[in-house]
């Protein structure tokens, strides 16, 4: 990555608001995301963090506001003015989306290898041997044994499914990955392994990440920057360790003080 790339934001979010009828999903959110930066959005259920994530990832159109993304050619494009074909290409090449429930992000009735290879085939890879080599490589990187390559994800444990989902997303070397509670619903030990894997992959690949979580420990381990949401508003934002160690807003102080100490 050149220094010029590093000095321009990858994603620019301006005054994004989403209403559900009369109710507010998220309100007037603005921020920049920089290359290689991990931004965590925290808040309790119903705070609007998932609404915001869906708006950012073009899965849900905002009521007002603009979201611009720096394409691989360097041009900033308004995501909601992209054509459907462009948007799909973006989502399967330059972006990733890791769902909380791995079944939402995987094809459960095709093999692990095909799950990883699908994006490659979608962008025109037509050499079976190459696809298989890539799939093998990525299964290895997410610590799934090579002899599971022809097994369905249905036979995988929750942690393995989640790692498979990550491999499936990263195989096209995306620049931006959205994650929705990627460790939710996993055992603590499985969570720790997944977090460590994510942390290393994000650093090695220089990924930009927007991660939604209600778990402050996940935010501390993975993110550079933190956004605290409450009732649709961003109430506090800053360096992750600054917000967690020196929380300013009453709600953030409550969140931080609610962490169970082990």
């Amino acid at each position: 990555m050149t220094s010029r790339d590093r000095n321009e934001p990858l994603l620019q979010v301006r005054n994004v608001t989403r209403y559900y009828g009369e109710r507010i999903g998220c309100s007037n959110v603005s921020f920049d995301l920089w290359p290689g930066e991990v931004l965590a959005i925290v808040g309790e259920s119903g705070s609007g963090k998932t609404t915001l994530l869906n708006c950012l990832s073009t899965r849900l159109a905002p009521t007002t506001g603009a979201i611009e993304y720096r394409m691989r050619d360097g041009a900033m494009r308004n995501l909601y003015q992209l054509g459907e074909a462009e948007r799909r290409l973006l989502m399967r090449t330059d972006w990733g989306f890791v769902h909380q429930n791995a079944a939402d992000g995987l094809r459960m009735n095709v093999s692990a290898g095909a799950n990883v290879g699908e994006r490659l085939m979608a962008v025109g890879e037509r050499h079976y041997g190459n696809i298989r080599t890539s799939a093998n490589d990525w299964l290895g990187r997410v610590e799934i044994a090579g002899d599971r390559i022809d097994d369905d994800p249905r036979s995988f444990s929750g942690g393995m499914r989640q790692r498979l989902q990550i491999a499936r997303n990263l195989v096209t070397h995306p620049r931006l990955v959205f994650m929705d509670e990627p460790t939710g619903g996993l055992d603590v030990s499985v969570q720790a392994r997944l977090l460590d894997l994510l942390r290393r992959l994000v650093a090695d690949l220089g990924l930009s990440v927007v991660i939604v979580t209600h778990d402050l420990a996940v935010a501390r381990l993975l993110s550079h920057r933190l956004m605290v949401m409450r009732q649709g508003d961003v109430i506090e934002t800053g360096l992750t360790d600054q917000v967690l160690d020196d929380p300013r807003e009453p709600y953030t102080q409550l969140l931080v003080s609610s962490i169970l100490q082990v």
Partner: peptide
């Protein structure tokens, strides 16, 4: 958007 057809052949 026909990547899926090749997924079937891959399988």
């Amino acid at each position: 958007d026909y990547g899926l057809m090749h997924v079937k052949l891959y399988e």
